[in-house]
Structure formats: C-alpha cells, structure tokens
Amino acid sequence: MTGPPFWEKPLLAIAEQVRFLGAFFRNLFRPGFEWGEFVRQCYLIGYKSLGLCGITGFILGFVLTLQSEPTMKEFGAQSFVPSMVAISVIREIGPVIIALICAGKVASSIGAELGSMKVTEQIDAMEVSGASPMQYLVVTRILACTIMLPILTLIADALALLGGWVASNISNKVALVVYFNKSFSSLDFSDLIPAVIKTIFFGFAIGFVGSYKGYNSDRGTESVGVAANSAVVSASLWVIVLDAIAVQLTSVFAYS
C-alpha cells in the first residue's frame, strides 16, 4: 500500500490556515468585541516589549552611525551620515529588526500561552460552554499585534535617531534639533508610509502565526514547547518573506 503523496501534508496545513484566517475575520466582525482582553493584550504585547525594542533601536542607530562615520569621512561626506542612518533605519532595518524581535518574544509567548490552554482543555472548555475562544483569545491577540507593532517600530526608529545623535556627538558636538533636521532632510512620506504599512502586516503575521500554532497544538505537554518554537520559526520566516514582497511593491509603486 502506498502512503499519501508527499504534498498532501503541506496542502492540508495551508487549507487549515486559510480556515483559521476565515474564522478570524468572521469572529472579528461578530458583535461583542472583547475590549477588555484587547486592551490587556495591547499592554502585554506593546508595553512589555517596549524596553527591549527601545534599547535595540537606540543601539542600532548608535552603532550604524559609529561605523559609517569613518568611511563617509574619507569621502568628505560626513554630513550625510544622519540622513543615511535615518533612511536605512526607517525604511528597512527598524521594521525588520523589531519584527524579528517580536517574532521571538511575542509569537512564542502567544504560541506557548494558547498551546498550554489547549493542552489543559481550557480552549475546549470555553468552546463547549457556548462562548467563542476564537473571539476572546485569537481576535484580540492578532489585533493587538497588528496595532502594537507599528507603534513599537516608530518608537524604536525615534530612539535609533537619538542613538545616532549620541554617536555623532562623540566626534563633534551637534545640537539635537540640528541633527534631527539633517536626518529628516532627505526623508518624506513615501519613506514612512510604506514602512508603516509593512509593519502592520508584520504584526498581523506574528499574531496570526502565534495564535494558529498555539490554538492547533497537539495534546501532551511537550506540544506547548513545539508550538512556541514553531511559532517563532514561522513568524520569522513570514517577516522575511513579507519584507521581500514589500520591498518589491514599494519600488514598483513609490519610486517609479
């Protein structure tokens, strides 16, 4: 007897995820949105990741400035450093780094939390009582991620610019206002808007993957670890893939 063809499993997995996505949207628009839980998740996802994302952003700007200054100096282009750092951080590095950090921190914790709720039958109990775990647990988490990730990224971007200012102050004193003016001189909305839109999708992917892996984890305690782990792996992968798509799209629409 031959087993099922090799492509059966991945296809089934994709079908499952599409169904999960459909269930998300159905529950999103159902009456009785869980405001309390949504706010709580925003706090947990956003506020609790603020320190990590902020420090990362600051160091990012600091290091980028320190490393590019000597090279730019050789070309006599030292005055371009602030705007170069600003462009690279806001367009690309900031969104991707923060999304990868959140893929590690947030997706894994959502995966582990929902996974353990699944294993201990809490999700089943909620469903069997006639309540909607999709609405209470999943919609709130995915939405919170979708909203908090752009905010976290913007904060990290701002701190990266601050880090750049601190770094450039080591070699020669420059006022913060002057530095920020220089930074923004070559930035405009066509840089910021695609970057923000991109992070919205990153946030959605992180929330979605974390919830999906947790919600559909197997029985047995080891599956909690599996859910958390595979949530990080898939979420990181999604971030990279979405970024590649976003870069293609923005270069077609924004710069043509």
Partner: peptide, 30 residues
C-alpha cells in the same frame, strides 16, 4: 452547548483569571 454542561477531568479553569472571573465568564459571554 448552552444546554449541556461538560466537566473536564482537570477542571479546565482559565489560568489567567481569578475564580470570580472564571465563573463570570460564561455569564457575560454566553
């Protein structure tokens, strides 16, 4: 499901909520 009660082996209490919120959950949500 509202007319059927299901007691899980573990009790399946919602870990992140107090006992009060556990009991209030079906009242407010269902």
């Amino acid at each position: 499901r509202i007319r059927i009660g299901f007691l899980f082996q573990s009790g399946a209490l919602y870990d992140s909520m107090t006992v009060f919120d556990n009991l209030a959950f079906p009242l407010t949500r269902v």
